[in-house]
């Protein structure tokens, strides 16, 4: 993979790597993708893709307002202002 492509990927992933990590992953990524390329040879293009391994029925819940049991517990451990979770400036 080219450096420019790799850096673009890191930006999309919101990942920062140490120089050691960058060197390790860049070194391996080519051989891993080459390993993945082997699936091209498998004849299965006429099949439907399986997004789940078993048939999962689409289930919707009733359109009924349900109060959250314990909203304070959900916000514990984060910085909050009233019922907002504080995050970085956009």
């Amino acid at each position: 993979m080219e450096d420019k492509e790799f850096e673009r990927l890191l930006k999309i992933c919101r990942l920062s790597l140490t120089e050691k990590e960058k060197s390790a992953i860049k070194k391996e990524i080519g051989s891993i993708l080459e390993y993945f390329d082997a699936i091209e040879k498998v004849k299965c293009d006429d099949l439907e893709p399986s997004y789940h391994p078993v048939k999962v029925a689409e289930r919707l819940r009733e359109d009924k307002v349900e109060a959250c049991e314990n909203p304070d517990a959900l916000l514990k451990g984060t910085k909050t202002h009233r019922f907002y979770v504080i995050g970085p400036d956009v």
Binding site: F36, I39, V42, C44, L47, E48, P49
Partner: peptide, 11 residues
């Protein structure tokens, strides 16, 4: 990659 892998899962 991704769609092909899903089809391989079907196979």
């Amino acid at each position: 990659y991704y769609v092909k892998a899903l089809k391989l899962r079907t196979a």
